[in-house]
Amino acid sequence: MKSYRTRLVTTAKKLGVLAGVTACVLSLSQCGSGSSDPDHEPSRGSRNPASSSAPDGRPAEGLERVITDYTAGFDEDTGYRRPTRDDRRTLAESVALLLDGRRTAAEHRLADVDFAVRTIKDPVGGRRYAEVADRSEDGAAPRGWGRVYIDLDSPVRWSVQVPHPVADRYTEQLGARLLSRSPGGILVIAGAHRDAGRRDTADVAHRRDSVFHAICAELVRRGLPGVQLHGMADDSAPRHDVVASTGRGRHAVSEGRDLADALKERGFDVCRAWARSCPLEGRSNVQGRAAAFHDVPWLHIEFGPGIREDRRRARGAIEALADLTRTWRRQD
Rank of each mutant, 00 (worst) to 15 (best):
S254T: 03
A314Q: 14
R102N: 09
A244Q: 08
Q161G: 12
R272G: 00
D134R: 03
R128S: 15
I215E: 06
S245A: 13
H40K: 06
V17M: 04
D87Q: 08
I215L: 00
R208H: 15
G185A: 03
R198K: 05
P183Q: 02
L97N: 03
D75W: 06
R257S: 08
L63P: 02
A196S: 04
Y149Q: 02
L299D: 11
R102S: 11
R266A: 06
R118T: 15
A291P: 13
A275K: 03
A233K: 05
A72W: 05
E281F: 12
I215R: 04
I186H: 03
Q161L: 13
T246K: 09
R7F: 14
D203A: 06
V21G: 08
D114A: 14
A237L: 12
V253L: 08
R5F: 12
G20E: 13
L15A: 14
V9R: 07
R326P: 00
S43V: 08
A133C: 09
D153F: 11
G45K: 00
D310Q: 11
D241G: 01
D323S: 05
G79A: 04
E64M: 07
H251E: 15
A192N: 09
D112P: 00
D69L: 07
V166S: 07
D114E: 15
Q331I: 01
V25L: 14
V66K: 10
S35F: 04
A54D: 02
P305S: 07
H240K: 03
S210N: 10
E255C: 09
S180R: 11
P42A: 03
V156M: 10
E131I: 00
E41I: 01
F268S: 10
D168W: 12
D153Y: 11
A92H: 01
R199K: 05
